[in-house]
């Protein structure tokens, strides 16, 4: 009640005279400036987003090419790694080691003799390796996958032209694939300086 009664008092202003007003035109001019700003921001935003997307797309395409390039490089490297590990496996095969040892003039003694350090006792009768009966003088086991290109035969000039080994035009290059050649006459030493021992029981 009290509100109804006081309200008219506050707006007691001279009543405006009625006049005809032009109907609001259906044009952008009629949009309030605030709405217009929103539209501007949205438009700009869309533009910026599109631009960023474009840039991202370009960047992405570029990295796809880079990725493909790196994948090729990885493939090339894995080919090389396979080549080398195949060669290592083959060179470390028993057949190859036996052949290499034989080509150096080493002979497996079929009659090993043991020496006990504690009391300097010799077990068995020492026999010259060449005289021993039962000596296996040659490699008896086939190995179709064997690479014969090793440090030892490169050095002695007996590098084979086996098709299964990496053939490089220069022998030096072939050698560098395997290992540095060992100079004749120098002692062959292992990196650790000790001869590896098998587990003792």
């Amino acid at each position: 009640m009290s509100i109804a009664r006081t309200a008219p008092a506050t707006i007691r202003a001279p009543r405006p005279r009625l006049s005809s007003v032009a109907a609001p035109a259906r044009s952008s001019h009629a949009i309030p400036s605030q709405r217009r700003r929103v539209l501007k921001v949205v438009g700009l935003g869309v533009l910026v987003i599109n631009a960023i997307q474009l840039l991202l797309h370009i960047g992405l395409s570029q990295s796809v090419y880079q990725l493909s390039h790196l994948q090729h490089e990885r493939d090339a490297l894995s080919v090389q790694s396979q080549l080398l590990s195949e060669q290592v496996d083959s060179l470390s095969s028993q057949q190859n080691l036996a052949n290499a040892a034989a080509s150096l003039g080493m002979i497996a003694n079929a009659n090993p003799v043991f020496l006990r350090i504690a009391d300097a006792k010799v077990f068995g009768t020492p026999t010259a390796a060449l005289d021993t009966t039962g000596r296996v003088a040659k490699n008896n086991l086939a190995n179709a996958s064997m690479t014969e290109n090793s440090v030892l035969n490169i050095q002695s000039g007996a590098s084979t032209s086996s098709s299964s080994s990496i053939q490089q035009p220069a022998p030096a290059a072939a050698g560098s694939y395997v290992a540095a050649p060992i100079a004749t006459g120098t002692q062959v030493a292992l990196p650790s300086g000790v001869i590896p021992a098998s587990p003792t029981h």
Partner: peptide
């Protein structure tokens, strides 16, 4: 398949 040691345990 490759068998680096050939007939060893072939």
């Amino acid at each position: 398949r490759v068998y680096p040691s050939g007939a060893v345990a072939g």
